[in-house]
Design a protein around this nucleic acid. Structure first.
Lengths: 160, 160
DNA sequence: TCTTTTTACTTGACTAGTCAACTATTGACT
DNA sequence: AGTCAATAGTTGACTAGTCAAGTAAAAAGA
């Protein structure tokens, strides 16, 4: 697939700015969704990111997860996760304890209080998800999922 | 279009989690794009948001724009823009001056240094835009733009 | 003209993303 | 056992988003 310089140059013009427009639309739309989502969670005293952590820990069950495993499942970078967990722990929604098998790891588990919070937010959040993309047909939703997957794989990221 | 409660309940199941899946994909993809974009800009000593401000100010020409007008054109909330401009001004990329006609407003203009910076980043950023969505056909790009527009309008936001 | 309201920011406080540097363990190799 | 590298996580410093409250100037109303 070796491309000549001419190919590169020739290619660079034709699809000029349509892809940039799509990229901008993607960023704008995601930002809007994020804000609506955070707005919904705010009355519960939990932020979007904190909510994500709690969802992940609920999924992990009572064995919990080591800190960096949580970071992996979020879209996030490692250093941020420590302080994020600090704040969630301060609110009593998670517990952290050194793993006896590997004392480098901190095992994080969701508390009963944390689970109770999620039970209250589950329904409204799910409803919001449906409503946010409510103007798209089932077919369009499938198409969107496919296009986004395509874009992500092109970037060499798979996560999950 | 008044819906009965039964309609609501009946509806809530069929498309259960596909829309939530799409929403998650949207957030993940956008976050990935944002990071790649920031990574490209980092060597130039400018962040993604700072870059956006400079692009907007370049478009505005030498008359400049009042602070909140910039915030409107970004995806951003008002309070953040002040400090964002503080940092950009400290780097010498913009100037701010009270508008003589309306002394409440601060007119922001891009400096020659700021313009020079943009000239160096334009090509690589544009190339990145093409590459990020490079795996999509022209048709798919158009579809994506349309779907995203649809979602945003459904939320009651139009911006630009 | 004087008060009230609105507009255009600005500041403080807190949450979060990100890079670089650091500590505590663990695992591998000698 | 003893050193060295890799792993798991933490901390510091800075950028940025977001809400609430504050200031200054302009516009509206009495």
């Amino acid at each position: 697939m070796a491309k000549t310089l001419q190919d590169e140059i020739r290619q660079s013009k034709p699809f000029s700015s349509k892809r940039e427009e799509a990229l901008l639309g993607l960023l704008r739309t995601a930002d809007l969704m994020r804000r609506v989502n955070n707005g919904l969670l705010e009355p519960f005293g939990v932020t979007g990111q904190q909510y994500n952590v709690l969802r992940i820990l609920r999924g992990a069950g009572k064995d919990g997860l080591p800190t960096l495993e949580i970071a992996d499942r979020m879209i996030e970078q490692t250093p941020g996760i420590t302080r994020l967990l600090d704040r969630i722990e301060a609110k009593g929604w998670v517990k952290r304890a050194r793993c006896p098998k590997d004392r480098r790891q901190m095992l994080c588990t969701i508390t009963a209080t944390g689970l109770a919070l999620l039970e209250r937010t589950d329904a409204p959040i799910s409803a919001l998800g449906e409503k946010a993309l409510g103007s798209l047909s089932d077919n369009q939703v499938r198409t969107l999922i496919r296009l986004l997957d395509n874009v992500r794989q092109n970037q060499g990221e798979n996560d999950d």
